[in-house]
Amino acid sequence: MNNTQTFSISVPLPSIAYEYAKQFEVEQATSQKGKQVYLNTLAVYAVHSFLQLMDIATDISQGNSWHPVSRRFHDVADLVLPEFGSLECRPVLTDDKIIFLPKEVTEDRIGVVAVLFEENLDQVHILGFTPANAAGLLPQEIEVSQLQPLENLLDELEKVAALKSSFANTSSQVSDNTHFLQIQATDITQNLAIVNLSQWLQNLVDASWQTVEEVFGREKAYLIFATRSAQLSQRIVRAQQISLGTLATDEELALVIAVVSKVAQEREIILQVHPTRTNILPPGLQSIVLDTNGNILLQIEAKNADNKIQLKIGGRPGEQFKLKIVLGEASFTKDFVI
């Protein structure tokens, strides 16, 4: 640890950093997870503050660490640099000799910045930097004593900027000849379009989404979703028949989504998959929720005799996620924004 402290930089943390950290902490299910999120949040804010001093633009709200679903289910401490990519900002305690990185944060990162926390949390020390390797991957274990000086981070950002500039010049030459690739198939465009779920609460629903009664019939609709609720006026339920592109499942599945308005702009999203022609789902059918980087947030698989599978997520307007329904090699994917 002493070797790295010779080039560490002390960064004072403003009160807003602690407010964010406390807010994110209390959202967690356990005190252990809350502590993890608390330190991750402060580490991200410390690196954000340091880069701001260096006149390097950051967008702290765009990282997975600022996404309520991502930080709830993953150990993430990423900071987005719009001109470069993402940095992982890992908290380090005074007795730590090794920095352990979860596997999900070892990809899609420029590198990792280590942030030392001492007993007094009114300021932290940015210890050093480890870049991703030539394949764009970070190791899962990093010795604190082997961290590189922070000036190497600035050198790495210069390299990334140079590569992006070179790629942009090449891409502009290619783009002049790619107009013929425009997709005009209505079905494909509709499937790729992002679905705004908050608009549903304002009765702005695309025609491709039907009522439960329209998809399942009046008699079965009552069993699909328990719509009797004191919050009925704050909930909307819609359904859509889906195809995985196989003859075995064509038009035999339906996606049912409920959007529930909670307090303080919070939304609860309930995602169900039902059979439409039989009483049970195909065993092995999976429903998967992913974040915008393709990381799995939630996942469930149909067992023998399951008549539905369901996932629940929470979030605020503007947050995005992807739903993927998979059976073997076949799949259906839809993008959503809360």
Rank of each mutant, 00 (worst) to 15 (best):
I99S: 04
I224N: 02
Q199D: 06
L290Q: 08
E266L: 12
Q241H: 15
A230F: 15
S61T: 01
Q320M: 15
S172M: 07
K33R: 15
P68A: 09
G63Y: 04
T94K: 07
T4G: 14
L137F: 11
E158I: 11
V174C: 02
Q140P: 04
L150R: 15
R238I: 10
V260Q: 10
F167D: 14
L232F: 12
H48Q: 06
D206C: 05
Q32Y: 06
V260T: 15
E104L: 02
R71Q: 13
Q234A: 13
E19D: 10
I188N: 00
I236F: 12
E219Q: 11
A29I: 11
Q199C: 02
L39Q: 07
L244D: 05
K103M: 10
I270Y: 15
L153F: 13
S172P: 00
P275W: 09
L197Y: 07
D291C: 13
G328S: 06
Q184T: 08
S70L: 04
Q62K: 14
F24A: 10
K322S: 12
L197K: 05
T130P: 08
E107I: 10
W200G: 04
E158N: 12
Q240R: 13
Q265K: 03
D122T: 13
Q202H: 07
H48W: 09
V112W: 07
V80T: 04
K308V: 01
V47D: 04
V337M: 12
N279W: 06
L192G: 00
Q320I: 01
A258L: 13
Y38V: 06
S175T: 09
W200F: 03
A207L: 04
V337K: 10
I194R: 05
R277C: 03
F117H: 03
R277Y: 14
